Simulated scan of single mutants.
Amino acid sequence: MANSMTGFGQHTVYVDQTSISVEVRTVNHRFFDLSLKIPRSFYVLEAKVKNILQSYFGRGRVEVYVTVEGQGLVERVVDVDWLLLDQYINHMTVIKEKYLDKHDLSVDILPNLEEIFIVTEVEKQTDQIKKAFIDAVNIACQQAEQMRQTEGSMLIEDILKRMKNIDKITNQLHDRRDTVIKDYHKRILDRLSNYTAEINQTSDPRIFQEVALLAEKGDISEEITRLHSHVEQFIDTANQVAPKEIGRKLEFILQEMLRETNTIGSKANDPQISNWVVDLKTEIEKIKEQIQNIE
């Protein structure tokens, strides 16, 4: 069955003193649109993560949020600015020689000279951390995909019910078609009779030819046939066992159905058919709204 484009998945993994949490959110979009927000330490895996996401989701906006907590990914390292320290030592030597009697200066004050100590954080990327992160991405994607499948099944179920109603109305249009043509034919003759009472209609075949041509313009047989065909094609597409991005195809079929419905409404000068056309448009618009979220 078809997939919805709305889904959510979340998974957290723990490595030593670090937790890595991955959230995947998906919503409807005409194309595959990815927003990937990951820590700088995982930039090296960005291409791999994108490939994983595209293997799960063919269409929709996909937002991925990665949160890292703990110290397992960072190691703090202390370094010394030796050039600066040499200058301190040289100046301290001069100071001690010049002011030895007044001040007792020693190297004990060095820890207070924060400028000479440089503390940096080195990010660690072990194979264990990389694997844990990729596993979390996969599991979050699987959860989001499952949600999309569940919602997609519900959408298709409701859409097919509406499509069966459309098929029912189309059958009613077909059954009424002959009656409408006869009524239309009679109305044309009656009007001709009122305006051209002096013409002997039975003796002039051209009158009947013109009436037939006018009546044919109001014939909706071809539109009904195409509408039946579109309904069957829509149902077959929606019932595909392993669909791949069928949303666009369903949108196109629905657009063609709406086109045929509008033509029927403009050609058939009949109150009952006009009511059915309104019902058809209502069902098509409701289906159109739902299809916007089909992958």
Rank of each mutant, 00 (worst) to 15 (best):
K182E: 13
K124I: 14
S193R: 10
R187A: 05
D219S: 12
I181L: 15
E121R: 09
N200C: 02
L155K: 04
M147A: 04
N138S: 13
Q240N: 11
A212H: 05
N138L: 10
S153D: 12
V122G: 02
L173W: 01
T126M: 05
G152A: 06
I235Q: 14
Q209T: 13
G218K: 02
R148G: 01
G152D: 03
Q201P: 05
I156T: 13
K186M: 05
E145G: 05
N194Y: 03
Q125W: 15
E123F: 08
R191Y: 10
D204H: 08
Q172G: 11
N200G: 00
N165G: 08
H228Y: 13
R162E: 10
S229I: 04
S153C: 07
I220A: 00
Q172I: 07
K164D: 14
A144E: 03
E216Y: 09
K131A: 09
S221I: 07
H228V: 10
L189G: 06
D135Y: 00
S193E: 09
E123Q: 12
T150V: 15
Q172K: 13
R226D: 08
K217Y: 11
E223Y: 10
N194E: 13
I159F: 00
E216K: 06
M163L: 13
D158E: 14
I134T: 06
K131C: 04
N171Q: 12
